[in-house]
Amino acid sequence: MSAQIFPRNANALVWVSIIGLVLLIGGIVAALVGLYLSPWYTEVGVAKEQPVPFSHKHHVDQLKIDCRYCHATVERAAHAGFPSTDTCMSCHSQVWTNSPLLQPVRDSYQSGESVVWNRIYDLPDFVYFNHSVHVAKGIGCASCHGRIDQQHLTAKAQPLYMGWCLGCHRNPEDNVRPRDEVFNMAFDPRSLPLEQRVALVAEYQIPTDGRLTNCYVCHR
């Protein structure tokens, strides 16, 4: 009989290392998921630096300017329409004409060069999102963009993960609102009773037969 190679506490060591390995892997997975959901990665609530510190709070909430004044194609095109320098200047040729904050806009108007803004919502190119159909079917701006009318500096309100899109495509009655409330940032669709929202889904002919969750609805 040969001498025992392992000391008595080796048994405990085995358990400690097995449990430790499980905890380590679990911890790494949890950390990755946490990172994936964190604003550091999703940029939710993180305002990006812009050439002009434009405030939706001021323009939408305080001045009551309609979303469509600047995002003019939101009802008829895939793209909501980013305001051109001309749009800014249709007011700012008259008001705040000497503000140093607006110098990049005035420079752009004079030179014809674009103001280079930093994009906040950047969907992957394999997703085909269309603003006009959502607006036409009674999905409000605030359902995706949050209370952007309360933001001084613009930041993402949603990570735009696919599960979030699917949540609404599966249960459109959670977020549908009357068409004339689409641009009302303060309107809460859930203030309506469920039956009324279900009726709106039917009235606006939003498919409830599962078509909205087909891959090709968004990926073409």
Binding site: A78, H79, F82, V116, R119, P124, D125, F126
Partner: peptide
């Protein structure tokens, strides 16, 4: 390269 495909979308530089 699927995320940023070699095509232009609105307002891209």
């Amino acid at each position: 390269d699927m995320y940023d495909q070699p095509r232009y979308t609105a307002n891209q530089p």
